[in-house]
């Protein structure tokens, strides 16, 4: 738990930095309090596993495998993740809105990263 997987370059990104629709791999939960860390691990939010953020407000909604989890943003900001990948599916006309929202999310992410530096 304490050592980060070597394969993923360390970032200071957390789940709280991801916009809805983004997918990323979990790097570490070390900053989460132990009781909650154990529960998150049990739900499958574990280093190396891919999570998808479905929603950010009023709470962060995550999808891990087939499980949907609601966590408070405070907890989300303690779980570090890799760079998010691009949203996988964006096709046809109905998805245009989602795609737009996703692009807005990317801009948001870049801003966040700039501010952190």
């Amino acid at each position: 738990m304490s050592q980060q997987p070597e394969a993923d370059a360390p970032t200071d990104l957390t789940i709280a930095d991801l916009a809805p629709g983004m997918e990323a791999k979990v790097i570490s939960l070390q900053a989460v309090q132990e009781v909650r860390r154990e529960r998150l691990l049990a739900y499958g939010v574990a280093p190396g596993r891919t999570i998808q953020v479905l929603q950010r407000s009023p709470a962060t909604i995550l999808k891990v495998d087939q499980t949907e989890l609601a966590i408070e943003n405070d907890v989300a900001s303690r779980i570090t993740v890799t760079e998010p990948n691009r949203m996988k599916r964006a096709f046809h006309h109905g998805q245009r809105r989602r795609k737009r929202r996703f692009r807005r999310g990317l801009k948001f992410l870049q801003r966040r990263k700039r501010n952190k530096r």
């Binding site: 529960r39 949907e68 609601a70 966590i71 405070d74």
Partner: peptide, 10 residues
């Protein structure tokens, strides 16, 4: 206070 951590069943 313990923050929310809850599974959403379908």
């Amino acid at each position: 206070r313990s923050p929310l951590l809850l599974e959403l069943p379908p």
